[in-house]
Design a protein around this nucleic acid. Structure first.
Length: 423
RNA sequence: GGAGAGGUGCCUGAGUGGCCGAAAGGACUUGUUUGCUAAACAAGCGUACCCUAACGGGUACCCGGGGUUCGAAUCCCCGUCUCUCCGCCA
């Protein structure tokens, strides 16, 4: 959620930047400002009315004590009018405030100046590319065939137990996945991220805090019996650790890492692009997350990007980094870098990480603040990224590391798997 | 699932209708002092919104929402969350 004072003072900039998302925000911004002015006027009126009523009440109390009941009773008549007035003002104020809020919920974050304008993923900007794309033999298989060949992931079994998009990992498939999680967590911990285990179900307030609610409940599984939501990413519970916090400046930055399963309904297409591990309803992910001082958050974003790079370098997977264009940018993000690994057998890039700076957009919803050196409270910046999403890394390893003899496990993982080959 | 208790500021915790934005202690900040660590003493110390150039002032907030009352942290109703005991269970 954008901050109203910021909108007020940077009207043109907000509109120009939102245009990068192909949004004409002119009307909305004008309305925000009008509603806000209205709100403030009503607030002032209400405050004055209440102030008067408070003064009278005190007088009445004194009069009763000194036995001057007649005068007190007369004053009471006045308070009745004030009460009626304040009730009306309050209703108006609430109505305006909720209109303003509803409108603010609909406005996405203001893109960073470096965000390219654009509509679709074709307009994303490739900013970095590294790693060797192997030349595979004619017999090379896509990962779902390999999974079957080596019997390490069983999609049909998942269909039986739950439904499409819930695979069963078996034997070396399960072990490789566990190895990856362990390796990622070690790597993140070594880089200063504190490991946390968080709930996999969250309440409404948490879903709201990170921006999934109220508008995007469709992407989450809803446990209606208890009104809880299965998390679509660790970002939700982990960021909400800081909801309603007023930190000290020196407590910043906070850096966390968390492994969780992620649940996404993503009702949508079926077919080649979502085959195998490409898109699942349940998958594992290790997340990194930071709460930063506003002056440092873009440096932090760079550090997070560098960190994810180092993981992919160690895994020796071919990957590229994209700066997302306005049209592809998530609702809550100001700047996002996507990491994609090349899926050789499918001949396409698969997103495996998304690293974003949300600036104060989430913090405003979360009421996540810190006290600055002037003693004023200020919203902190939140950032997060995947390090990494497991299934597509797995797909990348299976496809890129396939040989005649089997799948060669990246060296860095061997201490974790205990085996070199899946065969 | 059954029964009960309770949600007060960063924390502990007092407060049962006006003198309460809220005692006291701790934590924290600043200052004084003692050779350091530390202790003692003194002062300060909630959040949000509104008005003001500023000094300052106003309003709201004691889990949330409604009600009673001239006046509510305090009384009433609904919701919600937490805790304890019993049952069940990893």
């Amino acid at each position: 959620m954008l901050q109203v004072p910021f909108i007020r003072e940077n009207q043109d900039l907000v509109i120009a930047r939102l245009a990068k998302r192909n949004i004409d925000a002119n009307e909305m911004i004008t309305e925000v400002i009008a509603l806000d002015e209205n709100r403030r006027a009503l607030q002032a009126q209400l405050d004055n009315t209440l102030a008067e009523s408070n003064t009278l009440s005190k007088e009445i109390g004194m009069l009763y004590k000194s036995g001057k009941v007649d005068i007190a009773n007369k004053l009471k008549e006045k308070t009745a009018t004030l009460k009626e007035d304040s009730k009306q003002l309050n209703e108006q104020l609430n109505s305006i405030a909720s209109q303003l809020e509803d409108l603010l919920f609909k406005i996405p974050n203001v893109p960073h100046e470096s965000v390219p304008a654009g509509n679709t993923d074709e307009d994303n900007e490739v900013v970095f590319r590294e790693g060797h794309i192997p030349e595979l033999s004619k017999n090379a298989l896509p990962h779902w065939e390999l999974a079957k060949k080596y019997d390490i992931i069983d999609f049909e079994l998942g269909n039986k137990i739950t439904g499409a998009g819930f695979p069963v990992y078996k034997e070396k498939g399960a072990k490789l996945q566990r190895a990856l999680i362990w390796y990622f967590l070690d790597k993140n911990t070594a880089a200063g991220y504190q490991e946390v285990q968080v709930p996999h179900l969250v309440n409404e307030a948490s879903g709201f805090g990170t921006g999934q609610l109220p508008d995007k409940e469709g992407q989450m599984y809803h446990v209606t019996g208890d009104n809880l939501y299965l998390i679509p990413t660790a970002e939700v519970p982990a960021t909400n650790i800081f909801r309603d916090e007023l930190l000290k400046e020196k407590e910043l930055p906070k850096a966390l890492t968390s492994y969780t399963p992620c649940f996404r309904r993503e009702a949508g297409s079926y077919g080649a692009h979502v085959r195998g591990l490409n898109r699942l309803h349940q998958f594992d992910k290790v997340e990194i997350l930071r709460v930063e001082h506003p002056t440092r958050s873009y440096q932090a974003l760079d550090e997070m990007v560098a960190h994810v790079k180092s993981i992919l370098q160690e895994l020796k997977l071919p990957y590229r980094i994209l700066r997302l264009c306005g049209g592809d940018l998530g609702f809550t993000s100001a700047l996002t870098y996507d990491f994609e690994v090349f899926s050789t057998a499918q001949d396409r890039w698969l997103e495996i990480s998304s690293v974003s700076n949300f600036e104060t957009f989430q913090a405003n919803r979360l009421k996540l603040r810190f006290k600055n050196s002037n003693g004023k409270s200020e919203f902190a910046h939140t950032l997060n990224g995947s390090s990494l999403a497991l299934p597509r890394v797995l797909a990348g390893i299976l496809e890129n590391c396939q040989t005649e003899k089997g799948i060669k496990i990246p060296d860095v993982l061997v201490p974790y798997t205990g085996f070199n080959f899946i065969d």
